Simulated assay, not measured.
Amino acid sequence: MTDASSRALRAAIIGTGAIAHAHAEAIAGLAPRIDLVAVVDVDADRAAQFAERFGAEAVYTDAAELFASEQLDLVHVCTPPLTHVPLAIQALRAGVPALIEKPTALSLAEMDRLVAVSHETGVPALTVFQHRFGAAALRLAALVREGVLGRPLVATCETLWHRTPDYFDLPWRGRWAIEGGGPTMGHGIHQFDLLLAVLGPWRRLSAFAARQALPTDTEDVSMAVVEFEGGALATVVNSIVSPRETSRLRFDFEHATVEVEHLYGYTDADWTFTAAPGHEALAEAWAQQPSDEISSHLSQLAQIVSALEAGTDPGVGADEARRTLEFAAATYASAFRGRPVEAGEITDDDPFHSSMDGGAVPWSPVKEAQ
């Protein structure tokens, strides 16, 4: 990583599929502070077309060649989940911070390797959790830190999306060994990451998961009831079988209710603030510095660029992302074992540490044949 204090940052994208376009557009939206200088894809033609569209000069088909040839300040890992950690580790060992699409890793074991390399090299491994960086979420986090909303009491977190069977035509989707899980890992993780960012550490959870309708090895719906260290109770629902799609979070504090309902990104207009009787003045604090910007890759990348320019730590780092991934692992462990799971319970010798399915999926082919 080179000095970024007085020049445009140099970025590369590995993987030029659908989500890479959001990354490239975010980079373009922050010009001239950051430039897309190179892209990597195993499909050379696709990489060349992507590079031409977004103005990248260099095209590679191999990440190792990228790191050997380019001086970079940031690399965006936009490949299928199976390759996230190996590519991110290559980047860190080359001294390049990595911004990794969710899920960061396929398992806690894999995540722990990434955390260890980030600590060893001192290079950030970051995860795309863009909903933390929308204006309203940042405002909510500040009010929570200040304590003016009172204790958090109750919360609901819902990712109710819809996917048709042809969504799983891509060979890496819906496979435990390649994608890591279903909507708990690949869809709802954005919403419950924001839930965890607001409410802090969780203590224990009880969960269910099912394969209701879709041709997938993984679940297509999961539900959890969660107790947080601060005493709040929350429900978390992750679904891809819900025809009326919505993403919803509600936080009930002692002095106010704060809600957001959107689909893939929110603006201030999607949030509602309701003060409890006697605390109406809080509405004025909530209404300060309104924004019409959408929570997006751009909002998170802007924070990262500012941090890299200033030499400070960007978010969301590997340690924080691990806590979110542990929540997903605990959801699966509780659902498939039929009992509550406590934070920190899934240790190195636990099957759910090495894979999200833990070898215990009730509808697995082996179990269905019995």
Rank of each mutant, 00 (worst) to 15 (best):
A8Q: 11
T16H: 07
A18Y: 12
H23N: 09
R53E: 15
R53I: 07
E57M: 07
Y60V: 10
F67S: 03
A68G: 15
E70Q: 14
V77D: 01
L82T: 00
L87I: 13
I89P: 01
A94H: 11
A98F: 05
L99W: 14
L99T: 03
K102E: 00
A109E: 02
S118V: 11
G122R: 06
L126M: 09
L126R: 02
Q130W: 13
A141Y: 08
A142E: 14
R145M: 06
T159E: 11
P165M: 14
A177W: 03
I178A: 14
E179P: 06
G182T: 05
P183E: 12
M185E: 11
G188I: 04
D193T: 14
L196G: 02
L205N: 01
A207D: 00
A209F: 02
L214I: 10
D217L: 03
T218I: 08
T218N: 08
S222P: 01
A234I: 09
T235C: 02
S242T: 15
R244C: 02
S247K: 02
R250Y: 04
E261T: 15
E261G: 05
H262P: 06
L263Y: 13
T272L: 05
A275N: 08
P277M: 11
P277C: 07
W286L: 15
W286E: 12
A287S: 13
Q288T: 14
H297R: 10
S299P: 08
Q303W: 11
G311F: 05
G315C: 05
E326S: 01
T331H: 07
F336L: 12
E342F: 12
D357I: 01
D357A: 09
P362Q: 11
S364Q: 03
S364I: 00
V366R: 14
E368N: 11
